[in-house]
């Protein structure tokens, strides 16, 4: 697991107040929404803010968000390719 994967998991746990969750409990390929981690639409907004604040990435296309936020792996891939900070 890369540093970025761990960093992302820590940020998600903190930002979304997943109080009882540990970094090693989130699988890299586990779906973040629906049956996986069970995040919802408000969490999606938080993730958009997180991407812009921490990595300088602005997501404007909702369809793109659906793919990017599929799992930790897809988020990390997208960040690696598009980060400005």
């Amino acid at each position: 697991m890369s540093d970025l994967h761990t960093e992302l998991k820590k940020s998600i746990i903190e930002q979304l107040n997943l109080e009882d969750m540990e970094v090693n409990e989130i699988e890299n390929d586990e779906p973040l929404f629906g049956d996986g981690l069970g995040l919802d639409s408000i969490d999606a907004l938080e993730l958009i803010v997180l991407m812009e604040k921490d990595y300088g990435i602005k997501l404007s296309d909702p369809q793109q968000g659906k793919e990017v936020f599929n799992s930790i792996n897809t988020m990390a891939d997208f960040i690696e390719k598009n980060r400005t900070r």
């Binding site: 930002q15 938080e46 803010v49």
Partner: peptide, 9 residues
């Protein structure tokens, strides 16, 4: 600037 939406909601 950019704000977290949850506390506002």
């Amino acid at each position: 600037g950019l704000l977290s939406p949850t506390s506002f909601i």
